[in-house]
Each structure stands twice: as structure tokens, then as C-alpha cells.
Amino acid sequence: MYPTVHIDHFQSPSGNLACMIIDDGSAPSSVRCDVLSHTFTPPQEPPGGCGATGFGSSIALAPGVPARFICAGDTVADPSLPVLAYGTTSVVGTFSCDSKEDGIVCADLGSGHWFRIAKASYSLN
């Protein structure tokens, strides 16, 4: 079991991954993680594309909904964010994110849906 903190906006120790967890009642609950530089091939853009926004660098998860890549013209990354150390879990509301040396794994504790994102690969569930 990893040590647990309650940070809603953080980055990986490498600074290449950044995540934001929203579960405060002000907006729909979700967790989003962005990878600044990646070598994996993202899935095909959704039907209709993403227009002027980017695709392939942001994964989101909402309660009860499988994780998916999203269109995003912005980023949650900021070099001033706190670092979620390897081997540490952040839990906010119904979401948890584990910082591992091979990426960040975030899960919806209520449904069991999750994703993993890293520089070289990703997994969606």
C-alpha cells in the first residue's frame, strides 16, 4: 500500500505528466492527466475530429464512465505544481492516482474504471 496524500493538482517527479482531480461539487467530477512528451501512438481522433484543439496527450475519467482520450487545447501541466512522489497515492473524493516509475495510474474507486499514462505507453479501462 502506498502512502496517501490528498492533492488535487500535481505532476510526476519527471515533470512529464500532470493531473487534476475535480471532486468538490463545483463542476462535474473527473480526473484528467496530460503527458507533455510521448512516444506512444494515440488512438484515432473521435468522429468529427477535434478542430483546432489537440488530441492524443490528455486522458480523462469520470465516475462510472470508461477512461478515454479527450480533445484538449489546453494543459493541466504547470511547473509550479506539487510533485506526487513515486510510490505515493493521491486520493480526492472517489478518485485515486498512483505515481509509479512507469507512469501514473488513476482510478474511479466507485466503478473500477482506470487508466495508466506514461511517456511510452497508455492503458484505458
Rank of each mutant, 00 (worst) to 15 (best):
G112E: 08
V65K: 15
S14K: 10
H9S: 12
I70K: 11
S12F: 03
I70Y: 11
I59R: 04
A60Y: 06
G54A: 11
V35M: 02
P79I: 00
I59P: 02
A62W: 14
G56D: 08
A62S: 15
N125L: 10
S37P: 00
I70N: 11
T94F: 03
S123T: 12
F95K: 00
F95W: 10
I70D: 13
I59S: 09
S14E: 04
T88N: 09
S111Q: 10
A85P: 05
R32G: 04
F95H: 02
K100V: 06
L17F: 06
G49P: 14
T53Y: 10
Y122A: 02
D102H: 08
P63C: 06
P3K: 04
V35K: 02
G110V: 14
T41F: 02
V83H: 06
P82Q: 04
A118G: 03
S57P: 12
T88Y: 05
C97Q: 04
D98F: 00
D24Y: 01
P82D: 07
G93A: 10
D23L: 01
R116T: 12
A77C: 12
Y86W: 14
Y2P: 15
G25P: 11
S57T: 12
S96T: 13
S12K: 02
V92C: 05
A52Q: 13
S30C: 00
G48Y: 05
S12G: 05
A27S: 13
P13G: 04
A62R: 15
T4G: 09
L17D: 01
Q44R: 14
V91K: 08
H38Y: 15
Y86C: 03
A118F: 08
T53G: 02
S58Y: 05
Y122W: 08
I22C: 00
F95P: 01
S14A: 09
I7T: 13
A27I: 06
V65Q: 15
C19Q: 05
S96Y: 00
I7H: 01
D8Y: 02
L61C: 07
G56E: 02
A60N: 13
P28H: 11
G48V: 11
S12Q: 07
S90N: 11
G48Q: 08
S26N: 12
G49F: 08
